[in-house]
Amino acid sequence: MSANPHAGRPLLRAGVAAGQAPRALVLLHGRGGSAADILGLGGHLAVPGYALLAPEAAGSSWYPHRFIEPVARNEPWLSGALAVVEAAVAATGLPDDKVALLGFSQGACLALDYAWRSGRRFGAVIGLSGGLIGDQLPPVTPGARFDGVPVLLGCSRQDGHIPLSRVLETEARFKAEGATVTTRLYEGGHHGVTEDEVILARQLLAGI
Rank of each mutant, 00 (worst) to 15 (best):
R166C: 04
L28I: 07
A88P: 12
V149H: 07
M1F: 12
E197K: 03
V151N: 10
D37G: 08
R66N: 15
D97H: 12
N4Q: 03
Q203I: 00
G188V: 01
I38C: 04
V84R: 15
A88S: 13
G80I: 06
L94G: 14
R13F: 00
A3Y: 03
L25M: 08
V167C: 00
W62V: 10
A111C: 11
F122S: 07
S105Y: 04
L53N: 07
E187L: 07
G119A: 03
A18S: 10
L164S: 05
L25C: 08
L82H: 08
L200E: 14
G15I: 00
A81P: 11
S129M: 00
Q136I: 15
V71F: 06
P142E: 05
L185E: 03
A54Q: 12
H44E: 13
A201L: 05
L137C: 08
R13Y: 00
L11P: 02
V193R: 00
D113E: 15
A24I: 02
E177S: 07
S60F: 00
R121F: 04
P55H: 11
F174I: 11
L112P: 01
V193P: 04
G49F: 03
F122A: 10
L39Q: 09
T194H: 05
R117F: 07
A115I: 00
N4M: 01
K98C: 06
V198C: 09
H191R: 10
Q136D: 14
R157S: 09
G42Y: 01
I162Y: 13
R31M: 11
L132K: 05
S105A: 03
T180P: 00
P55L: 02
G160N: 01
Q203D: 14
G30P: 02
A206K: 07
R145A: 14
